[in-house]
């Protein structure tokens, strides 16, 4: 619908002659793999395809962006702001960050999954996060709860849920499902092929509500930072959870450590000593406060 088409025929039959796709997410989500799949489908369809990536020092948890441009003859390798026909974002904040790429008629498929990259928290100690004003967002943002759409396909490997987004994009592009299946088979690890294709098909069949404005999308509230854990610094490595002899700590659904069972804590400090993120403080004087803070409504 939004790619420049040869003739303004009906949406389904229109064959795009060129287009720009930006795939965004954080390290470890499979952004590169997904953009490889997209590029493969386009290449197999006979397009000239250019794909370039921004990653490297970002490491796991950092921003990864891949640009895919296709057409009969593509020169520039990167997508200029305001020219992307599709933005595919595997992560909610990365979706916001990538929105400036979107063309007026473009559509962004944004997963509601939240994986806060460390850099985005630099100036927001204590877990409070600022968001762009809702009305500043462009049109055409489709928020998809990828985990819910993927369902049991992502039961063993959470990352598979993001393949739903590929399906959502595929539904707007005039290439047969078989082409996508072939590309997926050639790029995802062999033992994850079936679950990825299941997730892809569920994404293709998914009928999102009409393009959602950002303010209608779920805004995830971060839990209040507990006294002893600097939530904004925690990268969810699970070490504290694993080393705590009393099993006091848990990761919440955002992979942030929480002091879930303060009543069991003996103050041994192992969690603090072995936290790679310097996020945990054990303070004996503040023990009472910990209990009260943790025992409050959550």
């Amino acid at each position: 619908m939004s790619a420049r088409t040869a003739e303004p025929t009906s949406e389904k039959e229109a064959s795009p002659v060129s287009g720009n796709i930006v795939v965004a997410g954080v390290g470890g989500q499979g952004v590169i793999m997904a953009s490889n799949v997209i590029a493969q489908v386009l290449l197999d369809a006979g397009f000239d395809v250019k794909k370039s990536e921004v990653h490297g020092m970002s490491q796991r948890g950092g921003t990864v962006v891949s640009h895919v441009r296709f057409g009969h003859d593509v020169h520039s390798v990167t997508v200029e702001p305001g020219t992307a026909d599709w933005v595919v974002a595997f992560e909610w904040e990365e979706g916001l960050r990538a929105l400036p790429y979107l063309a007026d008629e473009g559509v962004a498929f944004v997963s509601t999954e939240r994986r806060l990259p460390p850099a985005s928290m630099s100036d927001h100690r204590g877990g409070a996060l600022a968001y762009p004003a809702a009305d500043a967002s462009p049109r055409g943002v489709v928020a998809i709860d990828t985990a819910a759409v993927a369902g049991d396909a992502a039961a063993t490997r959470a990352a598979v849920a993001q393949t739903v987004l590929l399906g959502a994009v595929a539904a707007r592009l005039p290439f047969p499902a078989e082409a996508w299946h072939t590309a997926i088979r050639s790029w995802v690890p062999p033992k994850t092929v079936e679950e990825n294709i299941t997730a892809f098909e569920r994404g293709r069949a998914h009928k999102p509500a009409s393009p959602t404005r950002l303010r209608q999308a779920p805004v995830v509230a971060r839990p209040p930072a507990l006294v002893s854990i600097e939530a904004a610094w925690c990268k969810g490595c699970n070490i504290c959870v694993a080393v705590c002899p009393e099993r006091c700590l848990e990761l919440d659904r955002f992979d942030v450590a929480v002091f879930a069972h303060p009543e069991r804590c003996t103050g041994c400090q192992l969690c603090s000593w072995l936290c790679p993120d310097l996020a945990i403080d054990v303070s004996y004087q503040a023990q009472e406060e910990h209990v009260h803070a943790a025992a409050g409504p959550r």
Binding site: G62, S122, P276
Partner: peptide, 16 residues
């Protein structure tokens, strides 16, 4: 802060 090391990186433990 937070630092730029990966989740679970041993360097953060030594640094602390």
């Amino acid at each position: 802060m937070p630092h730029m090391l990966c989740p679970g990186c041993g360097h953060g433990i030594v640094f602390d």
